[in-house]
Amino acid sequence: MLTYVVRRLLVALPTLWGVATGVFIMARLLPGDPARVIAGVLATPEQVAHIRHQLGLDQPLYVQYLDFIGRLLHFDLGVSAHFGSPVAAEIASRIPYTVALAVTAVAIAVILGVLAGVGAAIRRNTPLDLIISALSVFGISMPVYWLGLMLIVLFSIQVHWLPAAGADSPTSIILPAFTLAVFSVGLIARITRGSMLEVLSQDYIRTARAKGAPFRRVVLKHALRNALLPIITAIGLQFGSLLGGAVLTESVFSWPGVGRLLLDSIFFRDYPMVQGLVLLFAVTYIVINLLTDLLYAYVDPRIRYD
């Protein structure tokens, strides 16, 4: 197991480096002069030149690049052009909100998705299966930004049950978490159904039933356990779309997490912040994928010997 962990880590490192380089190149492609954005409209050319020097933007590109990578290793993402404070500090203050939202959404998605998927599989080709399968496709086809708006219209404007925006009350998380979960519920339900159907057709399931094991026990102990691998993969894989969905959901609900910060920063042309956030999203995705792979290897020891 240890060699596998080390090998996977070694594969992830060049990807991280590539992601950092990609973000660096992209930030140089962004239109406008970051020094001018920070200096403001009224700044004299001398002031702009001074800030450009402070930011190191008058250095040759390779010096800037090495400097960028060097700072990254110290978690130094530069200074926000909009807030004037360090990018890392601003991001850190927003992370708890996004984590709370993502964890709630994943919990909803796993519970509803696995329940629905198992239900559809054991009642295959019944109206229940048809309804669940249809709802799953609806879920993965739903534009999150639209779903969010419709829920605001229904639950906040028509009946004043839930807050439409912000994170000021404990009930604030309900609408955004549900909105964010819908895509993942659909995806997990689909994968669970498919995986369960495959396992349920195996010989050992028939054997278990033939020896008189109760149906519920066969489904939960024998089938679901063996159907778990694709489900875990699905949960890990949908994390990318969950992070992307968080950007949209947070913006619709004015939820003060990193996703909304990304969209706001694009509008503010706060490039150090955009750069830091894009990097954060990519690194999070790589780490989650790594954890999924490790969990995978832990659940199924055969994986390690490929």
Binding site: L243, V247, A282, Y285
Partner: peptide
């Protein structure tokens, strides 16, 4: 691998920002 590390919408947002 590097491109896949950026969630679809985040990559699209970053490209449109650029």
């Amino acid at each position: 691998d590097i491109m896949l590390a950026f969630p679809n919408i985040v990559l699209a947002l970053a490209l449109v920002a650029a």
